[in-house]
Design a protein around this nucleic acid. Structure first.
Lengths: 248, 248
DNA sequence: GCGCGGCGTTGACGCAAATCAAGGGTCCGG
DNA sequence: CCGGACCCTTGATTTGCGTCAACGCCGCGC
């Protein structure tokens, strides 16, 4: 495992928010250029290595986080070690909204990350001054809620094949925002999977073995190809989508 | 089933928000007395009968809803009829947050209801004038998100017994906010279940039969009593809680 | 180069929950 | 008072996925 040592690397003033590549995707886009310096003054940048935890479920919630690079898995645990990954958070993702005083989930980097960190009380005062930021956060939270409901449908009612198909479709749609006019076109598209089979299993409520077997079966049915374990090519997007939505 | 006829019954001006019993529990508590008349002017009250749908998944999202009486089930469907209930919404609950232009879920009354309805564009303008309302909504959404994550853990990783136990504990804790000093006390507490076994099954990702059998088993283990199908008495709260959290 | 630990795949087997089936209770309309 | 539509419960049987086990691959430290 990984040792616990301080993660703070730099004050963001060194690399101000104005040059932040993640800004257009993140909640920070709600802040005007002229006010960015105030935001920058509040932020610390941490760069967790792959495999490194940076939020522990149950710890006092002292910070908000804004991901500007890499990907994390968010998860909840049962006392005996069973794990449910509730989501993967990439660039632009905002973490730590909960009103509670402790974190409701843990977070661990699955790729080297770059994360902006804000102390909660300070961000609260910022929220008072920038209603637009609050509006943006509400938007984000609403979207997450919709995705959470979709995931509940998956976990409660879909078969293993449907779960894996849904996962791949969601990944494909999320990472390649393709123009509307070719939405239905069934052409191969590559999907990158930075997480392990174990992570996918814990996200889909399955076991490693079932995930692996399902990939194998989808491959034998010519729905996908797997050039490498972390790379999937969707050969029949429409077919996979029908499968994902339980239409066959 | 039920016919589709208009549900609107009265303008809320007839029974103004100031007298609303649900106000302290709902987002409306963020609005001052002096501004309530403006809120009241925007609201329509509908009273769906038990079994009546009042939100259809996929329909254009024209309204926000605020529940002031009764209980609804919220659900998502697969094309072949499989159903996942994503939550039960009672007094004070706010529905329709999604930024999308269509509803992401359906809603149906399980008891006779009383619901305040606001048109979306109008409420948007209201939000601009009352930042406190926006803050309150963000709070609500954050809480829902935490609960959704908890439910994902349940659906993805808990056994049937653990799911039913979790459900009962959540119901017991939610409906009877008991003083802190008797939190751990193992004394019987009654839980009212307005929903059918089928609803419980669809909420927990199980079948009716499994839910029924699990109740029977918990009863034979003296953890609960079931005076009637819609009434459960928790005899061993601590034991049920251990079971719910996977500790045995 | 070699041993080792983590990851992914595959096969054999077992089990928890789904499915299939039957019966009893309650409510309601005719 | 009776028939039918729901509910809920219980039993018998099936099955999808989990569990257990073995093995190959790859990267890494020594």
């Amino acid at each position: 495992m990984f040792h616990t040592r301080p993660l703070v690397v730099e004050k963001s003033a060194i690399e101000p928010c104005s040059a932040c590549a993640a800004r257009p995707y993140s909640v920070c886009s709600a802040i005007d250029d002229k006010d960015l310096s105030r935001l920058a003054a509040l932020a610390q940048i941490i760069t967790p290595a792959a495999g490194r935890s940076f939020i522990e479920e149950g710890d006092p919630a002292e910070h908000f986080f804004n991901i500007t690079g890499g990907t994390a898995k968010l998860f909840k645990l049962l006392p005996d070690g069973r794990r449910q990954i509730t989501g993967f958070a990439g660039v632009g993702h905002f973490l730590g909204l909960a009103v509670s005083t402790t974190y409701a989930f843990g977070a661990e980097a699955i790729e080297p990350m770059r994360v902006c960190r804000f102390s909660r009380p300070r961000l609260r005062s910022l929220l008072e001054d920038f209603p637009a930021l609050e509006r943006r956060l509400l938007e984000v939270a609403s979207n997450e809620l919709v995705m959470a409901q979709e995931q509940m449908l998956l976990l409660g009612r879909k078969t293993a094949r449907e779960r894996v198909a849904s996962f791949l479709i969601a990944r494909a749609d999320g990472q390649t925002p393709r123009p509307a006019y070719c939405t239905h076109v069934s052409r191969p598209s590559a999907v990158w999977l930075p997480m392990t089979r174990s992570d996918i299993a814990d996200y889909l409520g399955l076991t490693i073995e079932t995930v692996s077997r399902t990939f194998t079966r989808l491959r034998s049915e010519r729905l996908i190809e797997t050039p490498s374990p972390s790379e999937v090519v969707i050969r029949d997007h429409a077919g996979l989508e029908r499968l994902a939505t339980g239409m066959e």
